[in-house]
Design a protein around this nucleic acid. Structure first.
Lengths: 223, 223
DNA sequence: ACAGTAGGCTTACGCTGTAAGGATGTCAAC
DNA sequence: GTTGACATCCTTACAGCGTAAGCCTACTGT
């Protein structure tokens, strides 16, 4: 019976807010936000549900923390680069983070207090605009416009009924089944003449819209 | 004991999918989506929870129906009007509908099968672009861009920590409390020099971004 | 050596969505 | 007119949810 040098093995990591949050993110990524419960999360951590409450206030707090960690994954616009390039990089990184964690966009609303990473992100984006020469008001316009586009695009992207791997034609057919084909002529046209063409991927639309927005803002800046 | 002519009063409306959906919407508008449960909804309809299942498949089905009813509230772009005007009208109507029912944007993702009103809406928007002279591909670009902006803007708008009625300064102060003031210099600048100025309302940003997008698309169309 | 406390566990409560099956009322066919 | 089918409602029950309350143990600072 060793007294001082006891059983060396267990090596239990002591559970912490950080560990809880990143495990929660992993779980939401793997099984969907719907099946993220305090009990499941605790189990994943080798612990009982109520133990979590020593490290987080409640489930809302966990969701807040998760969203903030997603924002922490977004590359901030780099100083010194041309502003459009920096912004394009940041936008791409934001879209990547939000599609990597598709649950994030769906809890972004209903979160009222942004975390430090979120604030830092917003601050950096604003700063990038200001340094490019935007007035405070124009920076506000640009920030609102660009980020609305990013979030809205991801919102549409993650809820598409098909993902890139599935057979598009099949999905389209099954979706149109309950409806007469010519109730929605323009949707049919779009589908047959554009979406079903080889090489189509909705994700590619992102760059067109973003480019158009950035160019317009740039024009407004230099006028 | 009247036999044939029985108790005349009850006049029970017989419960239907439509009645369930619109009551669900009213309830979500009033008390928030979080407190929309099958039991509450049933109670509001003067009925037991399980009775609902004779008219809807399950709760998911209810949420699908609710979203579709919100889309049904959106004014479609009118034929014959100049396309930018028609689109501006439609965008404003969409924003109004989505802010009238703030829960809608938060369940729009996670809904995989769009209802008839949603499809009709999309079809009409596409049709409006096509009639304005856009190619199929350009119409796809425009649709993606404009609607991403609308949804993203509303997403940000409904989750603002303040609403127009509350004291802005107070909210800003309390939000910044946990942080050192100069951690986020650009946010501070934006707040003091723009947001806290009298007359500010985030909602006003909508028109700037939308105008810029529509003008750019119009330029792309006429080139 | 001892007190305080941090971090785990157990139990319990009121809520959720919904599966299963029983009761009632209406209507069509014989 | 009776019967049987069907739609619509209700009751009961179950597993799972977030979390309040309180207990137990092991480490920490003095």
């Amino acid at each position: 019976m060793a007294r001082k040098t006891r059983d060396p093995a267990p090596a239990r990591v002591p559970l912490s807010r950080q560990r809880a949050l990143s495990t929660a993110i992993a779980l939401a990524d793997k099984e969907g936000l719907g099946s993220l419960s305090m009990r499941k999360l605790a189990q994943e951590l080798g612990v009982e549900a109520m133990s979590l409450y020593h490290h987080v206030a409640n489930k809302e707090d966990i969701l807040d923390g998760m969203v903030d960690l997603v924002f922490a994954e977004i590359e901030l616009p780099t100083d010194g680069t041309e502003w459009k390039t920096a912004m394009r990089q940041r936008a791409g990184s934001a879209r990547a983070a939000l599609t990597r964690h598709p649950w994030a966009i769906s809890i972004m609303d209903s979160r009222s207090s942004p975390g430090p990473a979120t604030l830092r992100h917003h601050d950096a984006v604003l700063g990038s605009c200001r340094k490019a020469g935007f007035s405070v008001q124009m920076a506000a316009h640009a920030f609102s416009l660009i980020d609305s586009y990013i979030y809205g695009f991801v919102l549409q992207e993650v809820n598409l009924p098909f993902d890139d791997s599935s057979d598009l034609e099949e999905v389209v057919d099954s979706m149109m089944l309950p409806f007469s084909a010519d109730d929605y002529p323009h949707l049919v046209e779009l589908t047959t003449e554009y979406i079903l063409k080889p090489g189509y991927s909705y994700g590619n639309e992102f760059d067109y819209g973003l480019g158009l927005i950035l160019d317009s803002l740039d024009a407004a800046l230099n006028s």
